[in-house]
Every structure is written in C-alpha cells, then in structure tokens.
C-alpha cells in the first residue's frame, strides 16, 4: 500500500474517533461516572502521547515527512484528553479544599498537574504559524517538553495504580517511552557521527 497524506489523515481520524466511542461500546461504567471519565481520559492521554512519540522515528524510518500531520493530530488529541482530565478533576474532585492542599495530601496529583503544565505550550504552538514565528530550532527545542510530560504522566499513573489495578500497565508505558527515547538518542548520535 502506498501511503499518502490523505490515507494517513483518514487513518488518524479513525483512531481518534474510535477512542471517543470506545467507552460507549465497552460498557462504560456509569455508576461512578466521574471516576470512569477520569480514568479513561487519563489513560487515553498517555496512550496518545505514546503514539505521538512513535511518529518521529516512523517519519525517519519510512522517509515520509507528511506523517508530521499525524504527530500533530495525536499530540492534540492527547492534550484534549488531559484537558478533560484536568477539568473534571477541577470541577468534581476538589471541593472544600484547594489544589495545593490536595498536592500535599496526594503527591501523585502534583506530578499529573506538572505533566499537564508541560503540554500547554506545546498545544498552543502546534500550528505552522508558530513554527515560522519561533524558528524551527526554537520550536523543536520547546517541543522536547513532550519527554518530561510523558515521564511525569507515566509516573503520575504509576503512583495511582500501585495498589488497585497494579503497576504493570504504568511500567509498560514507562518502558515504551524509554525505548523510544533511547531509539532517538541512538539515531541522533549515529547521524551526527556520519555527519562528522
């Protein structure tokens, strides 16, 4: 199959729309909807972050620069989910006491918050205009924030999951993320040696 931009966009939309309807196909748990939405939005945000991280090596490997659109779409979807996650927490989870008190009582929430914080500038500068305005190098440097954002989200989920569903999934996310990071580091050093 020859990949082109159109097919690629179509494929991305299928994945994204599927992520929206999946909870309804799969007995989305309605007895405690706030808990279910928090859980699903958090999971989806991390998964789309991983998908986003996978695109860059794929662009290099397949030599298909148009895949950059897929990266942008997955990145924005991840941000959509983390924003939902944050807003549901803000409106339904903290009631009589503030965020700071909650950070102290439950440190894992602070890690999640910092992850969200790292992703805000990336979402804002995800358009082509910003790349032009900032210059490619500055833009690329800023977007390295995706790595700490990913590490913080995975750690946030790890701390939350240890006793209940177990840390296996969180550790899988972390392992995948590390693998992609190593892959990139290796690629970069390999290329720079050739450049020399």
């Amino acid at each position: 199959m020859v990949l082109d931009k159109k097919k690629c966009l179509f494929f991305c939309w299928i994945i994204i729309v599927f992520s929206f309807i999946y909870p309804f196909l799969n007995n989305f748990y309605l007895i405690n909807p706030v808990e279910s939405i928090l859980h699903y939005s958090g999971q989806s945000s991390i998964r789309f972050l991983l998908l986003t991280l996978m695109i860059t090596p794929l662009i290099k490997f397949l030599k298909q620069p148009f895949l950059i659109f897929a990266r942008k779409m997955f990145g924005l979807t991840s941000f959509f989910y983390v924003l939902l996650h944050f807003l549901v927490y803000l409106f339904f989870e903290i009631e009589s006491f503030g965020i700071y008190e909650d950070f102290q009582a439950r440190p894992f929430i602070a890690y999640g918050f910092f992850a969200f914080f790292c992703l805000i500038p990336l979402a804002i500068t995800s358009n082509n205009k910003s790349i032009k305005k900032m210059g490619v190098n500055n833009w690329k440097n800023l977007h390295q924030l995706i790595y700490p954002a990913f590490a913080l989200s995975a750690f946030h989920y790890y701390l939350k999951s240890v006793s209940k569903e177990g840390p296996k999934l969180a550790l899988t996310y972390l392992f995948f993320g590390l693998f992609l990071l190593f892959f990139r580091a290796f690629k970069l050093s390999f290329r720079s040696r050739i450049d020399d």
């Binding site: 405690n32 706030v34 808990e35 339904f92 989870e93 009631e95 009589s96 006491f97 909650d102 009582a105 439950r106 440190p107 894992f108 701390l159 939350k160 006793s163």
Partner: peptide, 10 residues
C-alpha cells in the same frame, strides 16, 4: 491517604 481524598467523598 496518598491516593484518595479522605476529607471529602462522593
């Protein structure tokens, strides 16, 4: 508790 709020409940 490190994961669940004990000040409030749903």
């Amino acid at each position: 508790h490190p994961r669940w709020s004990q000040k409030t409940e749903r």
